[in-house]
Structure formats: structure tokens, C-alpha cells
Design a protein around this nucleic acid. Structure first.
Lengths: 245, 245
DNA sequence: GCCTATTTGTTCGTATGTATC
DNA sequence: CGATACATACGAACAAATAGG
């Protein structure tokens, strides 16, 4: 695919790296490079625009920042896949959302431990503060790309051992089923957004500082009694939250 | 206030700029520099850690990205004031949500013009592409602090002149009422998040690159026929979206 | 498994532009 | 106006990760 090779406008107020970022973005949206495809090496792009490699790197960093490309040391720079629609409704199942988009869902347990309920968490779960909770830290992927990391809190002793069940099944829904909860619904959701910390970014396999959507939710049994508090961090440029009434 | 001056660990796998970012963040959270305070010049920080100024700039860029500091050309780099998150409810109108929280709501029309419907917009509004739409650009404040900026599209000729009505009333709900739409409902919502552009940040009176929540919504008459497409950008530091079933 | 070429990541040095005080 | 401080850009070198022979 051919791309524009017009010279940059130098000394006209718009920094070279910004112009390069714009031109590269146009190339991508116009289909010169498809999703998943590899961009030319930085050195080649630098030559194309007649600038130093640093200037190209500044432009690529801006595009990476916005989730348009992703660079991997030793491999190259690749066009990111467009965000996956993630529906949130009364019953939200991660695996359903992913498979419906034609991608393969997987979930892994990173770790689990027992923690004391904070005041906020106790109120949400309708229990006493300092009661014990089972904390699950999980990561969810679509086609092996991490979409979200979650911290889930469950009351004890009722859900003791659910961490092992989850590790086996890879699905919270199936783990619940084995603990006597055939169905559950979402009763409260809060959504915010911020930059990711270094650790969060590492788990999500994205550069530090990229944006995460923070989704706090409370799930309950169909009877209405709350059984789960979750904070999920979604890589904001891999997921688009869709609300369905 | 004194700060650590321990040397960096060089050649140990962790890049110098990451160590510097961590140390500076520790300095800030430990109170060495309070909110609003000015950091030492990049040259001084470079000297403190025994690195080139570029390395310090890389670290500061990472912190600025996360909203911890803000650099202004010619002035210096400053510690950002901690964000004050603000809840907003989904089922209510903007002005209702703000006044219910005991704050004063205001809406201003930044500009309006006539545009052609894109393919996406036409599909959402159930009209033909390239039909004319009225575009409203608005800003919404609570107690004079901008919470969001919006781009609203309305079909023409039905809503011709609604821009003037909105400018007078400062409320879309009231403007609708004067155009024969006593009530409307949200039929589709998509939520994503990203860094703000320079212009967006300026309108929201926040530093460039800070996170905005992007809320795309389609509103319809109670009969179900869509009458409005809106993209609202919320300053993520000032708003937390609350979903209520 | 090793070696090598390729590609991105980091760091330094240097210079100039531009905004603020 | 000059001094200060951040913004942009170039050149050079080496490190680190990856892919392929």
C-alpha cells in the first residue's frame, strides 16, 4: 500500500512530531495498514519524513498513548485492533461478551487471599465491617490480549474454596454454579476512568499511564441479597462499554 | 523540604527515568512538595540524580500523563491538586443531577452549525446519510467548574432554531419542551475513555492529556423514534458515572 | 542452542525555539 | 530587555528483545 510522502511544514507552529502522528493516523484509518499489521521500522518512517528517529518515536508514542498502535521491543510497531463492545446489563457475563464478538475468551486467577471487609465493602454486602472476605484477583483476555483485571470480594465462609473452583473452571459464573448460586444479577455500577499505575499497566500488557476504565459493581442473587463486590479495570482502548437498558 | 539523594541503580534492568519517576512520586505523596507547589527545574532534578535533562523529562512526562504534575512552558512544573470526584446519575437530566447534589447547574452554547449526517449518525437517527443535522456544542458546569462538553446532533428541519432556544434556556430539556418534545429517553449508551486533546482540555479547564470519559448516547421520543445523537466528554477527575437499573 | 540481523528502548550530548517572569 | 525554563529536534551510541538461520 502506498502512503503519502509530502514533505512536512517546518517552522509553521505545528511541531514535526505532531504532523507525523497525524499523517500516520490518516494512513491507518484510510487502511494503508490494517489492524494487527506491522508498521515500517522507525528508521524507515524517519527517512520517509526526513526527520530524526527521535521525532518519529515522539509521534509513535503519542499514537501508542491513544491506543492506536502498540510497540514491542525487538518486534516492531503494530496497529491495534479496534475496541471490543462490552455490554453491561442486569446479567453480564464476560465470556459471553467476548465470544459474541467472535473472539476467544479466557480468565486466569492471579491470586487469592482472605481480607477484612472495609466499611464501604461491608455496607455494599450488607454484612458487618471486619468480617472476612475472599479476595480474588483475576485477569480476563480476548484472544490472549488482556482486556481487564479484576478484584472480586466474596463473603466468607459461604464462598470458601471458590478460588480453587474458579482456577479450575476459569469462569466466575461456573464457579458460582458449583457453590449453589445458579444465577446472579448486577444491582449497582459505577464507572470512572484514570491513568493506569505501573503494575496495572504491566498486568494489562500496556504502557504505563494508559487509560483504564474503572468499573465498580455489586452483584446479587436474584432474591436481591448482595454476594459480590468487584472492581474491574478495563484497558480503555481495547473495550467500549455498551449500556443496554 | 529535603528529599532523598540516593544514587540510582544503574544497569539493573530498571530504566533510570522509571526510577526517577518513582522517586519523584514518592517525594510528592510523602509531602515534600505539596499540591500546587512548583518542582525544581528539570536541570536541578537532573543534577540531583546525576542524569541528563532528557532522562528527567521522560520521568516528568510519565507523571504528567498520570495527572500527578503539570508542566507549563516558561513557568515550571507543578504538583497537581488532588481530584474531587463527582457523582452523576444516569436516569436523570444533567441539571437535575447537579441541583440534586446541592450545586448550581449551568449550560452554555459554545456554537452551533449545520452539518451533514455521517453514515453512523444517519443509522442511529434512522435517516438517510447526508441529510442535514443541527450541531450544538455545549459546555456544562456545576458551580462554574466545567464538568463536560457535548456535541449534540439533531435532525433538520424539525429542530431548526433549537440552538437559539437552548441559548436562552440553558437547558436541552427545556429547549425540547418548546419544540414539542415534552419527554425523551435514552435508548443507547456507549462509554469509553481516553486522554483529552489540547482543545478539549482547554474547554474543560484542565491540563492537556488528562483523562476524559466519552459517553455516546442516542435519545428518543417515548415512542421510540430517535431524535438526538450526543457525544459528551466528562472530565474524569470530576465525574463518576453511576448506573441505576 | 547459538549466532546474527533487525527493531525498539534508553541515554547522553548539543542546539535552537518559545513562553514566562 | 534579559534571564529562566520548558519544547522541539538532531546526531550518536549502546542496550535489550525478538526472529530467523
Amino acid at each position: 500500500m502506498t502512503v503519502e510522502t509530502l514533505p512536512l511544514e517546518r517552522g509553521k507552529g505545528l511541531a514535526a512530531w505532531r504532523q507525523i502522528a497525524e499523517r500516520l493516523e490518516t494512513d491507518i484509518t484510510s487502511g494503508a495498514w490494517a489492524a494487527g499489521e506491522q508498521l515500517p521500522p522507525e528508521s524507515a518512517i524517519a527517512e520517509r519524513f526526513g526527520v530524526n528517529r527521535h521525532t518519529v518515536r515522539r509521534a509513535l508514542a503519542a499514537l501508542a498513548q491513544r491506543g492506536i498502535v502498540r510497540a514491542t521491543q525487538g518486534r516492531g510497531t503494530f496497529v491495534e485492533t479496534p475496541p471490543l463492545p462490552y455490554p453491561i446489563r442486569q446479567r453480564t457475563r464476560f465470556s459471553e461478551a467476548v465470544t459474541q464478538a467472535g473472539r476467544e475468551a479466557s480468565g486466569d486467577l492471579i491470586g487469592s487471599r482472605i481480607v477484612e471487609a472495609s466499611e464501604r465493602e461491608a455496607r455494599a454486602l450488607a454484612i458487618e465491617p471486619s468480617e472476612n472476605l475472599l479476595e480474588l484477583r483475576t485477569i480476563h483476555r480476548a484472544d490472549n490480549t488482556p482486556l481487564s483485571i479484576s478484584r472480586t470480594l466474596l463473603p466468607l465462609p459461604r464462598f470458601a474454596g471458590l478460588d480453587r473452583t474458579f482456577a479450575q473452571t476459569g469462569s466466575l459464573t461456573r464457579a458460582y454454579a458449583k457453590h449453589g448460586v445458579p444465577d446472579y444479577v448486577r444491582i449497582a455500577t459505577r464507572i470512572s476512568a484514570r491513568g493506569a499505575s505501573t503494575e496495572e499497566a504491566a498486568l494489562l500488557e500496556m504502557p504505563a499511564g494508559r487509560v483504564v476504565l474503572v468499573v465498580d459493581s455489586v452483584n446479587a442473587e436474584p432474591t436481591g441479597s448482595p454476594i459480590q463486590v468487584t472492581r474491574a479495570l478495563f484497558a480503555a482502548d481495547r473495550v467500549e462499554i455498551v449500556l443496554e437498558p
